[in-house]
Design a protein around this nucleic acid. Structure first.
Lengths: 141, 141
DNA sequence: TCGTGATTAATGCGTTTGCATCTACCCTAA
DNA sequence: TTAGGGTAGATGCAAACGCATTAATCACGA
């Protein structure tokens, strides 16, 4: 077993353990964690986001994301507008209600995250962010 | 945004990007990535594994895991035996065919992993493993 | 011994997912 | 201008998922 494989396994394990822990917390209200993730990704970019761009950051297949956006639009949390420059495309953005919901859930969730990662030193947090950032950068081989 | 939150987001992003990348590789044959994960977890422990223990390491709800094991048993890859010490429990282990399948898929997948993580130095790999290991250790708050 | 609460895994059921496919649109080159 | 290949996102459908609940067993104290 190489070092790379051990590192990946350890990363997966941390992701699984922490995700389960966060999911068990009682902060999600009317959303699932996956739905929150979509709202969060949209909240980060001020401008509207393309479906395909959003799909790159979310762990869902393209059809699953398409339908999840359907539901979020129906619930009044997300807006789906045609892209003026590309009539195939779609521009997604949060509605005010969507932004409120994201914030209301994001606050306590951020506290959970901070608590779970409080076992790390500030240096380790920086190292973790730097290393994982490097990993997601070279998206294509 | 605290350092902890940035680190967690970066970790999530790396997990999403790499998972999608691995999933797109043509190495999974008759298994899904989630099914492979179950076989892999079983392959790591030589002794039989309890359902609840396995569920701790896999990103699936308890009922979903129960039914996935059903399918894997039906396909002859996993054995489900009663636990002699606790008649509520179940002991899971790989069949020879399950072990073969895990190895056949694990080899090329391990190469994909090594390639994807080759952007990191050996020191970074060690740091990543150490830090994520620390994260999954304090499983309970 | 018995009863109460906790734990383990399975099942009913409505919802969500992924795969394959489809439609609509973009883009380049002949 | 138009044909052909590529890309964006939606849809049909079977499979898989999560939530809530159940059945069976354990464990401990009265």
């Amino acid at each position: 077993m190489t070092r790379a494989n051990e590192a990946w396994e350890s990363l997966m394990r941390a992701y699984a353990v922490l995700t389960k822990q966060f999911n068990a917390e009682d902060v999600w209200g009317e959303l699932t964690m996956r739905e929150y993730d979509v709202l969060y990704q949209l909240s980060k970019c001020d401008g509207p986001l393309r479906m395909s761009e959003l799909n790159r950051h979310v762990l869902l297949s393209q059809p699953a994301l398409s339908r999840m956006v359907d539901r979020l639009v129906e619930r009044g949390l997300v807006r789906r507008c045609p892209d003026p420059g590309d009539r195939r495309g779609v521009r997604l953005s949060l509605t005010p209600a969507g932004r409120d919901t994201q914030r209301a859930i994001g606050r306590p969730h951020a506290r959970s995250v901070a608590r779970a990662l409080s076992v790390l030193t500030p240096e380790e947090l920086d190292q973790l962010a730097a290393i994982t950032g490097k990993l997601s950068q070279n998206e294509e081989q």
